[in-house]
Amino acid sequence: MSEGVASLKHEGSQRQVVIAGAVAGLVSRFVIAPLDVIKIRLQLQIHSLSDPPSVRNVHGPVYKGTLGTLRQILRQEGVTGLWKGNIPAELMYLMYGSAQFSAYTYMSHLLDAIPAPYTLPSSASNFISGATAGAAATTATYPLDLLRTRFAAQGTDRVYTSILASVKHIAQHEGPTGFFRGLGAGVSQIVPYMGLFFASYESLKPVMATSPIPLPFGSSDAVAGVIASVLSKTVVYPLDTTRKRLQVQGPMRERYVHRNIPTYTGVVSTIAHIWKNEGRRGLYRGLTVSLLKAAPASAVTMWTYERAMGAMLALEEKHRDD
C-alpha cells in the first residue's frame, strides 16, 4: 500500500473506515481528557477574577486560565478530577469517530457519483461531506456528550453517583428531551466546523506533504489536521460555549461546581444573555485551552486514522497475495 493516499474518502472499505475511525476517536479522547474537563469548567463559569468580590466569593470556585484551573482542580479534587466524565466521553468518541468517518465517506461517494455537468467542485464536495458527517455523528452521540459535560461539571459534591443513575434521573425528571438539551447549538456548531475542517484538511494535506520545511508531529497528515482544526474551532467557539451552558440546565443546575449558572432556554437567547451579562469574553471562555486541546486531538485523530487504515489495507493486501 502506497503511503501517498490521495484523500480519506478513497481509503478502504466501509468496515475499515468504521474501525479506523473508532480507534482514532478512542486514542484521541485518552490524550485530551484533562484539557476537556478544564475547558468545560471555564465555559460554565459566568464570573472572573476581575469581578467584584461580592460576585466572586458567593458561588463556587473561580478559575483563571488553563494552568490555574489545572492546579485548582488537582488541589481540590485530585488527579481523578481531571478525568470526570471520561467513561461517557470514551463511549461518545468511539461512536462519534465511527459515525463521522463512515458518514463522510458515504456522502463523498454519493457526491462523486453525480454525473457531469452537475459534478460539484472538490471543495464543495468536501464541505458538504464534512458537514453531513458532523451533524449525523453529533446527533447520534449527543446523549453521551451531555452526560460527559454534566459529570465534568461536578465538583466535590457528586450530582450523579454513576452513569446508570444519571440516565435514570434524567429520564425520570427531564424526559427524553433532557438528553438532547442544547442539540440545536451542537448541530449549528458542528455543521460549519466539520465542513470547514474537512475542506481545509483535504486542501492542506497535499501542501503539507510537499513542504520543504521539516514538519512537527512527524506527519503532514497531523500538521494539516492541527491547522484545519484550529481555524475551524475559533470560528464556531461561541456555539460550543452555548451548548455547554444548555447541557447543564435542569433540576440539578445549582448543584454543579459553579452554583450560579443562569437559566437558559434556547440557542439565540443563551447567546444574547451571555453577550449582555458577560460580554464577548463570556462567549470565548476557555478558547485558549480549547485550541490547545484541538491541536493534539486533531493531530492524534487524523494520524491514528491514517495509520490504522494503512495497517488494515496492508494486511488485506498481504492476505490477498498469500
Rank of each mutant, 00 (worst) to 15 (best):
I213D: 10
I170S: 00
G218M: 14
L204A: 01
K168A: 00
H173F: 02
P216H: 15
A209Y: 01
V191M: 12
V159M: 03
S162P: 05
E174N: 06
G184W: 03
L231G: 03
T210N: 13
L231N: 02
P212F: 10
G218C: 10
I190Q: 09
V187N: 06
S162R: 07
V159H: 12
G182L: 06
E174V: 01
E202L: 14
H169A: 15
I213Y: 14
A228T: 08
G175Q: 02
Y160E: 02
F179N: 06
T161A: 01
K168T: 00
I170D: 01
T177Q: 04
P212G: 05
I213K: 11
F180G: 05
I190A: 14
S200T: 08
A228Y: 08
S203N: 03
L215E: 03
G175S: 01
G186S: 14
L183K: 00
H169S: 14
L231H: 13
A222Q: 06
H173A: 04
E174P: 09
I190P: 13
A222K: 05
V191Y: 09
A171I: 00
A171W: 00
F197S: 11
S188E: 04
A209F: 08
T177V: 03
L231P: 08
F179T: 12
M194F: 11
M194E: 15
S162Q: 05
H169I: 11
P214Y: 06
A222P: 11
G178L: 00
V187A: 15
Y201D: 10
V191C: 09
K168C: 03
M208K: 09
R158G: 10
G225W: 13
G175A: 01
K205R: 15
A209G: 06
D221H: 14
T210D: 12
G184D: 04
E174Q: 14
T161R: 09
G195Y: 02
G225E: 02
A224M: 14
A199H: 03
A171H: 00
H169P: 03
V167N: 05
Y193K: 08
P216V: 04
D221V: 12
V226R: 11
K205S: 07
F180L: 08
I213T: 13
P176R: 01
V191K: 05
L196W: 02
S166H: 13
S162I: 13
G175H: 15
R181F: 01
L196D: 08
A224G: 08
S219P: 05
P212M: 07
P214V: 04
V191N: 02
G178A: 07
G225S: 07
V223L: 15
L215S: 02
G218I: 04
S219R: 15
G218N: 09
Q189T: 12
S188F: 11
